[in-house]
Design a protein around this nucleic acid. Structure first.
Length: 283
DNA sequence: CACCATGTTCCTTG
DNA sequence: CCAAGGAACATGGT
């Protein structure tokens, strides 16, 4: 579920639900998701702390908390990996199968669940510091893109997944943005001309904004019964109709391009699928 | 059994 | 030192 738009929608959803809630208990069921943090340290840091704010940076969630002991705010960092979810459940609900961490908030629990355990909930914020600019901010300008891509021979699709270039684009929206910009995913980054650079920046911003808007208008409660879940993917078996046609190329191999009718292709780049229209994206 | 999957890090090779 | 490619992480769906 997790590229920038999905994380943004999740943050907006969680913000009013957890603000001012105090953590009364911390249960770690899967240490791996803590990264460099230990369960003991997490418990010591979070017990008695109160949520002050939630924000997003790239695909990371940044929770700020305040403790009665410490003057400084505590920062808790979340990342959903490939299959992570965060939601509130009722206090005595039995934990879902792949629950990694439960924060007891009194009447409710804050739950971090992650089937594949690639996600993180940690006090370690060093990864956030290495991120490139926010694609929806003014820092992400055409000039920035031109300078950042000037010396890279890497295929532009692969480059877009580099979180140091720009934060928050993943495998789905990389393909979608390139389709919208009409740029071949194989084009070496440094070979984009100025008009393509402008077009790509614009396409990235549009694709992400539209996905946020879409996610904000969709009910948050399906996919998994009884729990908040955002799912977004091309052809999930239980996807309702309105998810159709949202993505123009991702997971649409062999289907006709909505713009020109040519068959969408799938190729592998850096061991990951890329989807594109061979006619609309010939260069 | 085979292959695929929204992400990131680490290792090897050049 | 840097860039690029691939495997690894862990689990489930088709």
């Amino acid at each position: 579920m997790p590229e920038l738009p999905e994380v943004e929608v999740l943050v907006r959803h969680l913000r009013p639900l957890i603000r001012n809630k105090t953590i009364r208990g911390v249960r770690v069921l899967r240490d791996r998701v803590l990264g460099a943090t230990t369960a003991v340290k997490l418990r010591r840091t979070l017990l008695g702390a109160r949520f002050v704010s939630v924000s997003r940076r790239g695909k990371y969630l940044c929770f700020q908390l305040r403790t009665p002991r410490d003057r400084r705010p505590v920062k808790l960092i979340g990342h959903l990996g490939m299959t992570g979810r965060m939601y509130l459940s009722r206090r005595h609900d039995p934990p879902a199968k792949h629950t990694a961490v439960i924060l007891d908030l009194g009447r409710t629990n804050f739950v971090f669940e992650d089937t594949r355990y690639f996600g993180r909930l940690t006090l370690d914020d060093q990864m956030v510091a290495r991120l490139g600019p926010e694609p929806l901010s003014e820092v992400f300008s055409t000039n920035y893109l031109v300078a950042a891509l000037a010396r890279s021979s890497q295929a532009i699709k692969v480059k877009l997944l580099d979180q140091r270039l720009v934060a928050g684009i993943g495998n789905i929206y990389a393909s979608e943005a390139l389709f919208r910009a009409g740029i071949s995913p194989r084009l070496p980054a440094r070979e984009l001309n100025l008009s393509q650079m402008r077009g790509l920046r614009r396409a990235i911003r549009e694709v992400l904004r539209e996905a946020i808007r879409f996610g904000s208008t969709v009910p948050l409660n399906h996919g998994t019964a009884g729990r908040d879940s955002l799912f977004y993917f091309g052809r999930a078996a239980d996807a309702p109709d309105y998810y159709e046609e949202r993505l123009r190329v991702y997971d649409r191999e062999g289907r006709p391009c909505g713009r020109c009718g040519a068959n969408i292709r799938r190729i592998l780049q850096a061991a990951r699928s890329t989807f594109y229209c061979p006619r609309c994206q010939s260069r």
